[in-house]
């Protein structure tokens, strides 16, 4: 039972972390290698909220706003010139990640920070005692996934974004302001990364390089998922589940590379990943 819950919640956490990256890759076809930095920024929003003595839940909107504003600046000044050079965009955003990491270090120091758990304690679920927060993460992931499907399927922005995904030239010819759609998408992506950073704080230690550890995993998942949130959920469940199984029964260290190796193999067999499914 614990194993199943571990698998589900690990997948949920991966999903939360990867959505921001997928949003940007799906619409803009750009790999945002500063994703790790946005996660870190979000986590430090939680730290700052705690320092100021505010309600820890306030960190969520704060982090989303901080991520979105920084995303606005990033899209305008760094990413926009690089749409035609996707490999260079990876590098430029990675460089930005270095810069943000150093700025955080200058501001907060390089030490590990601790924040209060948003939901401490455990709950009994079908006779198993389990971390309440991990269960909350599962709920949050589902809410995020549903919210996003609504955004994409049910709103005008989502419709425009889907138009840009399918055929950007046509979308522009039809009078859609594709530049604005790109900017807004990028802001949502970075905002979500900030949000994910806050949600991560109870689960990992917070330090200026924490984001990098999550970057590669979410990058792999997004590559496998392609453009679809459904595929991302599937990828998180399969690869995250495999990671938990390998960590439990083989070795935690090898568990750490399960996602990356499986993603590489999946992409080798089916270069489009799960997006065709």
């Amino acid at each position: 039972m614990t194993l199943i819950l571990d698998m589900l919640t690990s997948a949920a956490i991966l999903f939360i972390v990867a959505t921001g990256l997928l949003t940007i890759f799906g619409v803009l076809k750009i790999i945002n290698f500063a994703h790790g930095a946005w996660l870190t920024v979000g986590a430090y929003c939680a730290v700052a909220t705690a320092h100021m003595g505010l309600n820890p839940w306030l960190a969520l909107p704060l982090a989303f706003a901080a991520g979105a504003v920084l995303g606005l600046l990033t899209e305008r000044f760094i990413v926009r010139p690089l749409y035609s050079r996707p490999l260079d965009a990876i590098l430029a955003t990675w460089g930005l990640g270095i810069v943000i990491g150093q700025l955080i270090t200058l501001w907060f120091g390089r030490d590990v920070q601790f924040t209060a758990n948003l939901i401490p304690g455990t709950v009994d679920l079908l006779g198993t005692t389990y971390s309440a927060y991990r269960l909350f993460a599962l709920v949050a992931a589902i809410a995020l996934g549903l919210g996003f499907s609504y955004l994409m399927e049910g709103t005008r922005l989502g419709l425009s974004a889907r138009a840009v995904i399918m055929n950007e030239t046509l979308a522009r010819a039809l009078g859609l302001d594709t530049a604005k759609i790109r900017t807004v998408t990028f802001m949502i992506g970075t905002g979500l990364a900030g949000l994910a950073g806050v949600l991560l704080t109870p689960l990992t230690s917070t330090d200026p390089t924490m984001g990098v550890a999550w970057l590669v995993g979410s990058f792999m998942l997004v590559m496998v998922a392609g453009q679809s949130f459904g595929a991302l959920a599937l990828a998180c469940l399969l690869l995250g589940g495999a990671q938990v199984i390998v960590s439990t029964y083989v070795s935690p260290i090898l568990g750490g590379i399960t996602v990356a190796v499986l993603a590489a193999i999946i992409l080798r067999i089916s270069p489009k990943g799960f997006s065709r499914a």
Partner: peptide, 20 residues
């Protein structure tokens, strides 16, 4: 230490964009 890394990072971003 951190300023130096910051400088390298900034320079790198600027170079990739303007002087690939």
């Amino acid at each position: 230490p951190f300023l130096w890394q910051l400088l390298i990072g900034t320079l790198f971003v600027v170079m990739i964009i303007f002087l690939p």
